[in-house]
Nucleic acid binder design. Structure first.
Length: 304
DNA sequence: AAAAGACTCAACCGCGGAGAC
DNA sequence: CGTCTCCGCGGTTGAGTCTTT
């Protein structure tokens, strides 16, 4: 153990017996009320002052990953998944940096998503998740499939959670501009508008998915910004990160399944739209995808 | 119905950087 | 300069839950 770790451990042990493990409702309430009155930061002092028998680290983590009012819950949308794939290809495992571009999502959540979903796909395909082949696979199959899913979600449905999140206002006649996309937003906080990187990435892969003959109806995310009535106001942060924080059930579950499990890629469209020659699956062996891949798998032999 | 295995995700750990002294 | 403390990040763990057999 490092000297720093020893120092921190010993200083912590001296103070009191520190609680570990899952947080209780009382602890959550203490933390929420304290931050509502005094703001966040100075975590060690905060932990003491709030009367929590927790380390400052633990308080910070609990707040940032769970209690903070603008935390978004529910499955990642195809748009968010797309953005994660794009940003990860740029920055690698820089989770906090990636999270900065997904409002309401935490680095922990994105990290978990990557480990449990993306790396699982890589394992099933017998590809190294950081390898060029995997990146190619993501770009050729996964991203177009997500885009397709996004387009499918375009058709307005009163039961779609997508229709609950972001009202675009002018639902015009163009296929994509009629899209009614949404963001899961906790009722006590104001949402953030779509990020520019998100729109750039989506536009980029929208074009990429049909590079030869881009459709005039291709989905342009810039429309979202231009047409959106999405609130531009800030969340209910008063000042110095002090929050106006009504205590209430912090539960907002997206009933739609936006996980990859729910996606249903059309192999033909994938083949048509992929810049395929650079992608050599042969090296993985002929049985690499013959295992019984259930619904949780994005790709199959048909898609090849 | 029960056991085993797989999966999810909140929480913890170790490390390094920044700033104060 | 060196030391100390705090903070934030990425990696890892493990309890709880879900699915399969």
């Amino acid at each position: 153990m490092s000297t720093i770790a020893k120092r921190e451990l010993s200083s912590n042990e001296e103070e009191s017996e520190l609680r570990r493990g899952p947080w209780t409702l009382e602890e959550d309430s203490l933390l929420i009320h304290y931050i509502a009155r005094h703001g966040e930061g100075r975590w060690n002092m905060l932990a003491k002052s709030a009367g929590l028998k927790r380390t400052g680290k633990s308080c910070r983590l609990r707040w940032l990953n769970y209690l903070k009012p603008d935390i978004k819950r529910g499955n990642l949308t195809p748009q968010e998944q797309l953005l994660i794939l794009e940003l990860h290809s740029k920055w690698g495992n820089r989770w906090s940096k990636i999270a900065q571009h997904l409002p309401g999502r935490t680095d922990n959540e994105i990290k978990n998503y990557w480990r449990t979903r993306v790396q699982k796909q890589a394992r099933q395909l017998n590809i190294e998740s950081g390898s060029k082949r995997f990146i190619d696979a993501v770009k050729c199959f996964w991203m177009p499939r997500l885009l397709q899913k996004m387009e499918q979600n375009n058709s307005p449905s009163p039961h779609s959670s997508m229709s609950n999140m972001m009202n675009l206002g002018n639902s015009g006649e163009a296929s994509m501009s009629s899209m009614s996309s949404t963001f899961n937003i906790p009722s006590m906080s104001s949402p953030s508008p779509p990020q520019k990187e998100f729109i750039d990435a989506a536009n980029h892969f929208s074009t990429m998915s049909n590079p030869i003959n881009p459709s005039p109806d291709s989905f342009q995310f810039s429309q979202l910004l231009e047409n959106s009535e999405y609130p531009k106001s800030s969340p209910n942060v008063l000042e110095n990160n002090v929050y106006s924080y009504p205590i209430q059930d912090n539960c907002y579950v997206d009933t739609n399944n936006y996980g990859m499990e729910g996606l249903n890629m059309d192999p033909l469209s994938a083949m048509e739209t992929c810049d395929f020659p650079q992608f050599d699956f042969q090296t993985a062996g002929s049985e690499w995808m013959l295992d019984s891949m259930g619904d949780t798998t994005l790709w199959n032999m048909d898609a090849m």
